[in-house]
């Protein structure tokens, strides 16, 4: 109940944040040098052609008028029309967000679970060979550029070993997958399409693995450091001095206490992961949100840039809300 009230309050607080983001992006994309009309019309278009195109996209209106039109559209769910493709931004984005979220959410969840298990394992063996090896490996993974790692993984797992499907597309088109959310794995599960599920999972293995390797290190370090702190704490020592079994100590006195600081960091890592998908998507020909937003920015496609920034801001707000709730659940001292 208290958590629901907290979530409602935080969502209300997000409204002014999102409004601010909308205003700032609206102004910023127009202040940046470059003209979307000139980029689509090419060098041979006449001044009259350009003016006509401008009028078609409403770019001849004064700035405040364009802004009001845009905000008015947002309230009715209209995110505008892409200057580049002429299609509705909302419908273009709908097929783009799913695949990227699928990638990022899976990567962050797997990395967090991995970091929890390995971090605590590592802390309990602090200073021994296993601990050192793990930390060095995590550091190496963190230092690799994701596009290079992606290419190496493709070379190994696809070209040499042939364990995974070719890095093109996200699901085998022969499986007749019905699109619902755009996230193929989820759609396959929802429609009960077994072959599509297997195919989508196969296509996900390498891109998710690439991201996990890159983002797991900071999470692992955090869990290990917290766990070491808990192991050295008076409270843990006291429980150990009362002769509780290793299992009880691990489950009741170490894990939860060590995870208290993880949610906030995981939320940050999630934000970072959204940014780093652009390269991963490129390497794996993943028709995702990052690619689409990048192209929008390169061509000064105002509605696309605005929509993508608002979506990312919304993601951040939601993720940090979730992180705060999880933190409050883990740590009884936190009041929300």
């Amino acid at each position: 109940m208290r958590i629901a009230r907290f979530a409602a309050r935080r969502l209300l607080q997000a409204v002014p944040v999102l409004l601010g983001v909308i205003v700032v992006t609206f102004v910023l994309v127009r202040v940046l040098p470059g003209d979307p009309i000139r980029t689509i019309l090419g060098p041979n278009a006449t001044e009259a052609d350009a003016a006509a195109a401008r009028a078609r996209y409403g770019l001849d209106q004064p700035l405040w008028r364009q802004f009001l039109d845009y905000v008015g559209g947002l309230f009715s769910g209209d995110l505008g029309t892409s200057i580049q493709s002429g299609a509705s931004v909302a419908s273009e984005m709908a097929v783009r967000v799913g695949p990227t979220m699928e990638l990022v959410v899976l990567a962050v969840v797997i990395a967090t679970l991995l970091a929890t298990v390995l971090g605590i394992w590592s802390a309990r063996r602090a200073g021994r060979a296993g601990d050192h090896t793990l930390r060095v490996l995590a550091l190496v993974g963190n230092s690799l550029p994701e596009f290079w790692l992606g290419l190496v993984l493709i070379l190994l797992a696809y070209s040499v070993l042939g364990w995974v499907p070719a890095p093109s597309g996200r699901v085998d088109p022969d499986t007749d997958l019905t699109l619902i959310t755009g996230a193929d794995l989820l759609d396959a599960a929802l429609t009960g399409n077994g072959p599509a599920f297997a195919s989508a999972a196969g296509h996900l293995v390498l891109p998710v693995l690439t991201m996990v390797v890159v983002i797991v290190a900071p999470l692992l370090r955090s869990v290990r450091a917290s766990a070491l702190e808990v192991l050295g704490s008076e409270a843990y020592q006291a429980a150990a001095a009362h002769g509780l079994s290793e299992r009880t100590l691990l489950r009741g006195y170490l894990t939860r206490a060590a995870l208290v600081r993880l949610p906030a960091l995981a939320a940050l890592v999630f934000g970072f992961a959204i940014g780093s998908t652009v390269l991963v998507e490129y390497v794996f020909s993943w028709q995702g949100f990052g690619q689409w937003a990048l192209r929008g920015l390169l061509y000064r496609d105002y509605p696309v840039v605005q929509a993508s920034v608002v979506v990312i801001a919304l993601c951040y707000t939601l993720i940090f809300l979730i992180a705060d709730v999880v933190h409050a659940v883990l740590d009884p001292r936190v009041r929300i």
Binding site: E234, A235, A239, A241, G243, S245, Y253, A257, P332
Partner: peptide
């Protein structure tokens, strides 16, 4: 030793607030 700790001799720690685990009821 595991049987002795707690079952044989149990300590009431100084600073009980610090010696109680903060994340377990």
């Amino acid at each position: 030793l595991a049987a002795h700790r707690g079952g044989g001799a149990a300590i009431c720690f100084q600073n009980p607030r610090g010696a109680l685990s903060p994340t377990r009821s």
